[in-house]
Nucleic acid binder design. Structure first.
Length: 376
RNA sequence: GGGUAGAUGGCCGAGUGGCUAAAGGCGACAGACUGUAAAUCUGUUCCCGCGAGGGUACGGUGGUUCGAAUCCACCUCUGCCCA
């Protein structure tokens, strides 16, 4: 199926370099709110804020694009209210690119609160129990009201483990829903990314990659991974699926991840990542370093006058010691969580920048060898 | 001076004869978290031992009892009330 996609008037992707020894890629995605240099880690800001991080610190972290969640923003503050403010960029005063997830992941993560039919999903607000309904058309309407640069297809993410027939049904429904999303979407200043599903079956992944690839989209996502499977399994399906997607388009691995997962994903040919881990882990007391993940509450940091990471230039690392942040954390001062969130976001953004530089210099393999084992 | 309530593991605090090495909370120590219902959840927290197990322990001393943190006597200390 071929059709002229009007989104290409506002979006384009240049694949700048492919690492000679691996599948790692460097590129640039042009959007109406600026360029995104890939590979890129995208911080998650579900409720139109990256939790505990102000826009000031977000800009300073060099985050190039952030996520919002259309399911949660539909419930609160309401997509129509955001539209009244002129869209999410004005609403939250963020002028770089934004991507919204469709609500598809909530079909998965809030499974006990929903009922799926061929048409769509009925669910209850986890906070007040009120019933709501989202289907592909509603999701497109919500996401167009919110006004992100990149919007996601409304999909059905299968759990892990998942029986073959169940996985196949979810994948086929995701495909039918994708066609409805494309039909319902009207604003060419938003790029709709299809999502490849297929759970943990090679033939389903191949079928799904082929299905989504027939649409001339700005970019493509790999969904349904990092849902509880082990790393080896996830890596297999990343490596298997990514090359099946169009080479000259950005590939977005949804919901990943850790520094080591980024390295593996990039090695497999992925360009974009998002994950709640840096901010959630920060709130829970762990922080990323070039020597792996650490816990600020550990007693060994009680008198440690050094920053969270010696090689980090984030606001927290420029200004505060581990001992001080640990003290704040143990006193339940939210500032500790905010500082750690700034650090973790900055770390992953910087990390993806350094990977990009290594790729451009054809040194990805060396970068991988040098750092991978520090993170596992 | 008289009366009264009380003394439990780092702290607070359940527990009134065996099911109590002693609930629960806090603190401490460690861990988990992957398209955010998450500043959440899990484990450990008297000593020795990998373990089975052993040793100490509920203010102190002595007693009753097969058996006491729990009952009795005296002592020490603390809160409150009256002079």
């Amino acid at each position: 199926m071929s059709y002229s996609n009007p989104e290409f008037e506002y979006f384009s992707y240049e694949l700048e370099h492919v690492d000679k020894k691996t599948g790692a890629r460097a590129g640039t995605l042009h959007t109406p709110h600026g360029d995104i240099k890939t590979p890129i880690f995208m911080p998650v800001g579900t409720n139109s804020t990256v939790k505990l991080v102000t826009n000031h610190h977000l800009y300073e972290s060099n985050a190039q694009i952030i996520l919002g969640n259309s399911y949660h923003l539909y419930l609160r503050a309401g997509d129509e209210l955001i539209a009244k403010f002129g869209g999410i960029h004005k609403w939250m005063n963020w002028d770089k690119p934004v991507l919204t997830d469709s609500g598809g992941f909530q079909v998965f993560s809030l499974a006990h609160l929903r009922k799926i039919t061929e048409d769509g999903v009925e669910f209850r607000d986890p906070k007040d129990g009120k019933k709501h309904y989202i289907n592909p058309e509603v999701s497109m309407k919500i996401q167009q009201n919110i006004g992100a640069d990149i919007i996601m297809a409304f999909d059905q993410c299968a759990p892990f483990p998942c029986e073959y027939n169940e996985a196949k049904k979810a994948m086929e429904r995701t495909h039918r829903w994708l066609e409805r999303c494309i039909k319902a979407k009207t604003n060419p200043k938003q790029a709709l990314f299809p999502i490849c599903q297929g759970a943990f079956y090679d033939d389903l992944r191949r079928e799904s990659a082929a299905f989504v690839s027939q649409f001339d989209a700005v970019g493509y996502a790999i969904g349904g991974l990092s849902v509880g499977e082990d790393k080896e399994t996830m890596n297999h399906f990343v490596n298997f699926t990514a090359p099946l997607l169009p080479e000259n388009k950005p590939r977005y691995l949804m919901g990943v991840g850790t520094p080591e997962d980024l390295l593996d994903g990039i090695k497999g040919g992925v360009d974009m990542f998002d994950c709640v881990l840096p901010t959630r882990n920060a709130r829970h007391g762990s922080f990323f370093t070039w020597n792996g993940k650490k816990q600020i509450k550990n007693s060994m940091y009680q008198e440690d006058s050094t920053p969270l990471d010696e090689n980090c230039d984030c606001y927290a690392c420029r200004n505060h010691s581990k001992a001080y942040i640990r003290h704040l954390f143990k006193c339940n001062e939210g500032t500790a969580q905010a500082l750690m969130s700034i650090h973790n976001i900055t770390f992953l953004v910087k990390f993806s920048q350094m990977v990009r530089e290594a790729i451009l210099e054809d040194k990805f393999e060396e970068f991988y060898q040098e750092h991978y084992n520090n993170f596992i």
